[in-house]
Simulated assay, not measured.
Amino acid sequence: MVSYVIRRLLQSALILLGVSLVTFILLYLIPADPARQIAGRSATAQTVENIREQLGLNLPFYEQYVRYLLNLLQGDLGRSYLQKTEVSELIAARLPATLLLMAGAIFCELLIGLTMGLVAALKRNTPTDTTLMVLSFTGVSSPQFVIGILLLYVFAVQLGWFPIGGYGTFMHLVLPSLTLGLLGAGWYARMMRSAMLDVLRQDFIRTARAKGLKRVQVLFGHAVPNALLPIIAMIGIDIGLFMSGIVVVESVFGWPGIGQLAWQAIQRVDIPIIMGVTLVSACAIVLGNFLADMVAPLIDPRIKLR
């Protein structure tokens, strides 16, 4: 176990290093000039050059990257070009809102998706199965902003059950979580159905039935735990995706998360914030996958960590 954890930590460090390098290269190659963005359109060429020198943007690429890595090793994500605030402080201020929305979205998509997938597997090749799979495909294919606006119009504007937007209470959380949950539930429903059908054909399921176990015991004691293994891996990936990929939902509902922070930074070419959010999201994906690998043996003892 210890050797496995050490190996995974080393792998994670290399992955994060690769993410930082690729992101830094892409930001270095973009045609936009951060110094010009900061100085404004009316600034003189000398002013722009002075700002570029102060920020170190006139240095060669490798010097800029090495400087960034050295600061990163000290826990310094840099300072926002435009907001004049430490990136770590900006992310820390937005992180609780994103984590709350992420937890709500994962809960919704698991509750809806796993239920749909389980029912579809048990009702295989029936109208119920077909209807659920069509709904799951529709959910996966629907744009985020369409689902969000429809939910807002029906449940906030017409029925008045929930606030139109904002952040701070449980009622503010429901609609954005449901929006993300409906989109993710389709993937979980399809995967759960496929995994359940595969498990139900296994010999140990037939043995459990032959021993006279009740159907509920067979399903939830043997079939469902084995079908959940690929689901756990998907949850690990979702953690990272929700950390940075919910910009549209955050914008529709006025949710102050780091996705919205990243979008604002991209519009303004605020490189330190873009790098900071990217690395935090990458850390979330790595951590999510690591936790998924650690939980898998608890569900299926046949899995060994090596």
Rank of each mutant, 00 (worst) to 15 (best):
A32E: 01
G184A: 04
T130M: 00
A284N: 08
D270A: 07
I147A: 04
Q260A: 13
L57N: 11
V140K: 05
S88W: 05
A13H: 06
R36E: 15
K214S: 12
V247W: 08
L82R: 13
D300P: 09
P176H: 10
M294Y: 13
L135Q: 05
R190G: 02
G56T: 09
L110N: 03
T138F: 15
Y28A: 08
I231Q: 13
A282I: 08
G221F: 12
T131P: 03
G236A: 05
E89I: 06
D129M: 08
T126W: 09
A105W: 10
R8C: 00
P127R: 11
L95Q: 01
H172A: 13
M196T: 00
I51Q: 00
R94P: 12
M171P: 03
F145C: 12
S42D: 15
G104F: 12
L14I: 15
L150M: 15
T138N: 05
I164M: 09
T126F: 06
R124Y: 06
D300Y: 12
A262L: 10
I285T: 00
V157S: 03
Y188I: 15
L159D: 06
L59I: 01
L175A: 14
V248M: 08
I147K: 07
N58G: 15
G78A: 13
Y68M: 14
L152T: 04
E89P: 04
K304M: 11
R41G: 04
L29Y: 02
L135K: 05
L69F: 11
G165L: 08
I273E: 06
A93E: 14
R193C: 09
L175F: 05
V146M: 00
I273P: 09
I91L: 15
Q11I: 07
Y62K: 03
I273D: 02
A195C: 07
M275N: 04
T115Y: 11
M196V: 00
V277I: 12
V295T: 09
L219D: 09
A120D: 15
M196G: 11
T207A: 14
S88N: 01
S136I: 06
R201F: 07
A103Q: 08
S244G: 15
N226T: 14
R124I: 07
Q217R: 03
A296N: 00
I30W: 06
M116E: 09
L152G: 02
L122Q: 07
M116N: 05
M1K: 01
R209W: 07
V140R: 02
I285Q: 00
D293Q: 02
G245V: 00
C283M: 10
T126M: 10
G75F: 09
L27T: 15
F155E: 07
Y62T: 04
I164Y: 02
F220S: 06
A93H: 01
Y62A: 13
L29G: 02
S244R: 10
Y153Q: 01
V249H: 13
I271G: 10
D33R: 06
Y81C: 11
V216R: 08
F204G: 04
L305D: 15
M192L: 10
E250L: 13
L291C: 12
A103P: 08
V224W: 03
L21A: 02
G78C: 08
V286K: 04
V277M: 09
D76H: 00
A210T: 05
G288C: 13
R8G: 04
R190H: 02
A97E: 03
F220Y: 04
I271L: 05
Q64D: 08
L77F: 15
Q202L: 00
W187D: 03
T126Q: 11
A195R: 04
